[in-house]
């Protein structure tokens, strides 16, 4: 399986990562090598095998829907790049 420059750009867009144009061929080459490695999976028939999501097939624990945390907004926002009046600031989204 090999990826071309256009596919790499599309995946980078889906992942919301900017990649310099000059670096695209390098990514295309290494990602293609990784996919060649991954393609070895096709060698084994898995038609009747149940996919395994958890090592012990455990499911997520549920808890009662009650408040367990105290409000620490100020502390959490102290590490944010930009806040105002308790809100996270980003560039304007809606005109």
């Amino acid at each position: 399986m090999s990826l071309d420059a256009e596919q790499v750009k599309k995946i980078a867009h889906l992942a919301r990562i900017e990649i310099n144009e000059a670096d695209i061929p390098g990514y295309a080459a290494t990602l293609s090598n990784i996919l060649d490695l991954v393609d070895q999976m096709a060698a084994v028939n898995t038609d009747d095998v149940e996919p395994m999501a958890h090592p012990m097939d455990a499911s997520q624990r549920l808890r009662a829907d009650v408040v367990t945390e105290t409000n620490q907004r100020e502390q959490f926002q102290s590490v944010a790049p930009k806040t105002e009046d308790g809100l996270y600031l980003v560039p304007q989204v809606i005109e």
Partner: peptide
């Protein structure tokens, strides 16, 4: 990028589900 590709529409079964099946084996 590899993960995004493996989870993207049209590739999910061939990569992620296949890998999870092999994980069980």
């Amino acid at each position: 990028l590899i993960g995004t590709y493996a989870l993207s529409a049209g590739y999910y079964d061939a990569y992620y589900i296949k890998a999870q099946k092999l994980r069980r084996l």
